[in-house]
């Protein structure tokens, strides 16, 4: 499904603020798998996600989605295969457009947009049904501007929008981080439901180790632009947050040792 091979990316090369964001990161995700990605600040989580979605061009390496080489494709061309929910709840929807217009936009993701009306009655009914499953009472507010909704509501609608059009890959970029705990919990449960319902291949970046272990079926830890831990199945079931923390400390320690070697 997703095949990222040996991704390299350096920000501001040749300057004092040079940053090695990705250093040979490779990750393969088979179809239908739900992978959670963790790592400390600057580990390359978001950069990796952006490299997959196309927002960030990479220096070298290859991004293949469903067997198609997408390395040089712009974001809008990849959108046919990739759906995405942003960390900022305001980023995933157009505040000037109504709820139904936002959904209509997502309904045509990756399709040819023509000159027929974007919101037709049949489509409106479909949207109404979909949005009713959220239980937020939004089904009667389809023609309201989405800017009137709260961050949590908008994030929930973003998730629905991601599943309106069958996509191969769902990218979630710390999409609960900006929400209050109760809303975050609601959005996370919704995520699990939508991913299961549509059997989506999913990559969820999170800063919470608890979350990383609770949802999905495989967990990957990034450090300094590489995959340093990759657990799934039985091995993952036995893991707890303190195990992850210990592993995290270990890889960080090793990294420090590497640096110490270099410096000595």
């Amino acid at each position: 499904m997703l095949n990222a091979q040996d991704l390299h990316l350096t920000f501001n090369p040749g300057t004092p603020i040079e940053t090695l964001a990705l250093r040979g990161l490779s990750l393969e995700i088979p179809s239908g798998q739900f992978v959670t990605v963790i790592g400390s600040n600057g580990a390359g989580k978001s950069t990796f996600l952006n490299a997959v979605s196309g927002e960030q061009a990479i220096d070298s390496g290859k991004v293949e989605i469903d067997g198609i080489d997408m390395t040089r494709q712009p974001v809008w061309a990849r959108a046919r295969h990739v759906a995405r929910v942003f960390q900022d709840p305001l980023a995933g929807t157009c505040e000037d457009l109504t709820i139904e217009e936002n959904m209509a936009l997502a309904k045509m993701r990756g399709q040819r947009r023509g000159f027929s009306f974007a919101v037709k009655q049949a489509l409106r009914e479909e949207f109404r049904e979909q949005i009713a499953t959220l239980g937020l009472g939004l089904e009667n507010r389809l023609s309201d501007r989405i800017g009137l909704l709260s961050g949590g509501q908008r994030q929930a609608v973003s998730l629905l929008m991601a599943a309106l059009q069958p996509s191969r890959l769902l990218l979630l970029d710390e999409h609960t981080a900006a929400l209050d705990p109760r809303t975050a919990d609601f959005v996370l449960k919704l995520t699990a439901r939508i991913v299961a319902e549509h059997k989506l291949t999913t990559m969820m970046v999170t800063h919470s180790m608890r979350q990383a272990l609770d949802v999905g079926e495989r967990t990957v830890m990034l450090h300094q632009g590489r995959v340093v831990l990759d657990v799934a199945g039985k091995e993952r079931e036995g893991l707890d947050v303190h195990h992850l923390l210990a592993m995290f400390e270990k890889v960080r320690g090793e990294a420090l040792d590497d640096d110490a070697l270099l410096l000595s």
């Binding site: 959108a79 990739v82 980023a91 157009c94 505040e95 000037d96 209509a104 947009r113 027929s116």
Partner: peptide, 20 residues
Amino acid sequence: QTGLAIRATGSNARMARSQG
């Protein structure tokens, strides 16, 4: 659909791109 895509571009270009 085309008109909506133009309005979305002005309102939130990043989102519009991610919707193809």
